[in-house]
Every structure is written in structure tokens, then in C-alpha cells.
């Protein structure tokens, strides 16, 4: 792993729990993530994988969902987040950590013009007079490449298309030029042409702002197209991590392999039986013993269901996998 540049976020062996009945249930257990400066990382997971919880853990918003860290570590810019109090997190959000998601689109107040929304957002985090805040808002709109910025500022969200609204949301997340932008399924509800333009924008912004991007998605095609590193999450644990091209072309975990095989591609015609996995990913509270992928894994053997969820181990120079049989299954 290249540690030459200081990683922005390092998550190690993270356990996150939520209360349930009279006790608690782990929704993440064995989650690992490293976001290097300037990299674009794909966080891949399906339902029940815990990918949204992992985002909340990094952003310090777990408590809003009744969840808490019950094991492992999170380091933001080298500092241990378990010592953060509310005001520490508050300072980080916006200046270091930015967030954009599907829900953010609904968060655009329909009674506020774009200008008021951005000015309000700017003044909430920075001590600015009106004129500076307005300038800040204008710069933000231009940064997300919305044409005729002055006109856009006076529009209401309902007058804008889905793609334009998403750009406004991105603009408000980038007001303080954070070091890391976490984008949680930012393009799910958007048409494919709009998706491309938003993703292209995000890629350009990572270069121009020297910003890292965590793209949370279940769509491997997006990961392939727009990220250079990838972390695969299954049932609350990281099962594989490495460079995107390597992982997708030469996976070292049966789940990654299955995900890649299940992709429907333009140009392929046939649906083959290897294209889907039986069953469904286990939900928190229903995780099986041993490796959580065992019930659906085509390569599972007895050894896989003993012990706990395997940890990530290095297999190739910059690849880590949690499959204890990876050498037998995939070769060296």
C-alpha cells in the first residue's frame, strides 16, 4: 500500500452496533478502508453490507441513527476519531469531510432560491459578511460547471432538472473545499447521460481541488469507470481491497468474482447461470458463523465456516483479501 502521502481516512477493523431488543447488533464488523490523498475510492456493497453505516462512521454522524462504534479505529488525517467530541466533528465536516447523497437532493429547501441556500450554508460554517458569502456561492456554482451562474442562483430547486439540483448539492458540500468528498449513490436516480456528466464533474473536481473521493455504490460499472481504488464490503466486513483495474480483472475473493460475473454488459448477449448468486446477502443479526459469504460461496469448504469472519490479508503486493482460500481458488 502506498503510504507515501498521508492518507486522509484510515479505518481498521471497525465494529459498529445499533441497539436491538434488549441488547445490540453489529451492523459492521471487520470493516476496513484507507482513503489516500487525491485518490478516488469505490466503496462497493449491496443491501445489508453496511456501506452507509461506514460512511456515517467516517463522518461522525452515527449517533443520529442510534449507532455507535463498538470496536476498531478510525483515523481522520492521522487523528484518532474516538477522541473527537461534537465540536471536533463539526469542525471537520465541511472543511475536511464533505458529503453528498440521494437524500441531499430532498434536503434542498423548495422555498429557498439557490442563492439563499448557498449563502445560508456558507455562513453556517464560515464567519462571512453577506458580500463574501455571495461571492462564495457564485464561485461554488461556477465550480460545478453550471452555466449562467447568476441566473441559476435566482432559481428555485423545483425549476431545475435532477442533474442541476445534484450539482447544487455538490456545490454546497464543496464550499469549504474539503479534503474528502463522500458521495453515497449520487447518481442512482439520474438518467445515464446525466450520470455521466455528474461523474465526469466529480472526477474533474478531484483533480482541480486536490480532493479525494469515496464513491459508494453497488454498481461495478461506475466503479470501473470512475475510480482508481476499490473496497468491497459484504455483510459488514471488507472482503477485498486494491486497485480498481486489478481487482475487477483479477478478483481474489469469491464475492468480488461473483459480482463481476453478474454484471450485465453491453455486447454480451447470453444470460448464463453463473451470473447470479442464490439466496440474498445476510442482514445484521443473521450473519452465519465463520466467513459470512460461506452459504453462497461456490468455493466454500468446511474450514470457511469455522472461526470468525476472516481478516483482510495481503496476497499480492497491493492487494488484500479476506478469503482464506484465495491462493487455492485463484492461484498466486
Amino acid at each position: 500500500m502506498s503510504d507515501v502521502v498521508d492518507p486522509v481516512v484510515v479505518v481498521r477493523n471497525l465494529t459498529v452496533s445499533v441497539p436491538h431488543d434488549s441488547g445490540s447488533i453489529a451492523v459492521l464488523d471487520g470493516a476496513e478502508l484507507t482513503v489516500n490523498s487525491g485518490s478516488r475510492l469505490g466503496l462497493v456493497g449491496e443491501s445489508g453490507s453496511g456501506k452507509s453505516m461506514l460512511c456515517r462512521a467516517i463522518l461522525g454522524t452515527l449517533h443520529r441513527h442510534d449507532a455507535r462504534v463498538s470496536g476498531g479505529t478510525i483515523h481522520i488525517q492521522g487523528r484518532d476519531a474516538s477522541f473527537f467530541n461534537d465540536s471536533d466533528w463539526h469542525r471537520l465536516r465541511g472543511t475536511v469531510l464533505g458529503y453528498v447523497s440521494q437524500a441531499s437532493l430532498a434536503g434542498l429547501n423548495p422555498t429557498l432560491t439557490v442563492r439563499r441556500h448557498l449563502v445560508h450554508a456558507a455562513r453556517a460554517v464560515m464567519a462571512l459578511d453577506t458580500r463574501s458569502a455571495e461571492r462564495c456561492a457564485l464561485e461554488a456554482i461556477e465550480m460545478v460547471e453550471l452555466p449562467r451562474a447568476n441566473r441559476i442562483l435566482d432559481e428555485y430547486p423545483s425549476q431545475l432538472s435532477g442533474g442541476m439540483r445534484q450539482r447544487v448539492v455538490i456545490a454546497s458540500a464543496l464550499l469549504q473545499r474539503p479534503k474528502l468528498l463522500v458521495a453515497d449513490e449520487p447518481t442512482t436516480a439520474l438518467d445515464v447521460t446525466v450520470q455521466k456528466s455528474i461523474m465526469d464533474l466529480l472526477v474533474r473536481l478531484t483533480t482541480s481541488l486536490g480532493m479525494s473521493l469515496v464513491l459508494v455504490t453497488h454498481d461495478l460499472a461506475l466503479v470501473e469507470e470512475y475510480t482508481n481504488e476499490v473496497v468491497v464490503l459484504y455483510a459488514g466486513a471488507t472482503v477485498e481491497a486494491g486497485r480498481t483495474g486489478d481487482v475487477l480483472n483479477d478478483p481474489r475473493h469469491p464475492y468480488t468474482q461473483a459480482l463481476q460475473s453478474s454484471r450485465l454488459r453491453l455486447g454480451d448477449k447470453k444470460l448464463t447461470s453463473g451470473m447470479w448468486l442464490p439466496g440474498a446477502p445476510p442482514q445484521p443479526g443473521e450473519w452465519p458463523q465463520g466467513c459470512r459469504f460461506t452459504p453462497r460461496c461456490p468455493h466454500a469448504q468446511d474450514v470457511c465456516s469455522s472461526g470468525g469472519q476472516p481478516r483482510l490479508e495481503a496476497v499480492l503486493s497491493v492487494r488484500r483479501t479476506a478469503c482464506i482460500r484465495s491462493e487455492e481458488v485463484f492461484g498466486t
Binding site: V192, T193, Q195, K196, M199, D219, L220, A221, L222, V223, E224, E225, Y226, G245, L248, N249, P251, Q257, Q260, S261, R263, R265, L266, G267, D268
Partner: peptide
Amino acid sequence: ILTRPSAAYTQRLLEAVPGRRSRPL
């Protein structure tokens, strides 16, 4: 249509589809 689209719009749709670089395993 998917290999030789005649409409420009179809062409745009095809070009916007992500992830066409990696080969199937």
C-alpha cells in the same frame, strides 16, 4: 441498434454507459 445505432440520441445513450473497458471474466 446497440451496435450500429442510427439515431444520435441512441449514440449518446450508448456512450454514456459506464464500465465498458474491462473484459468479462
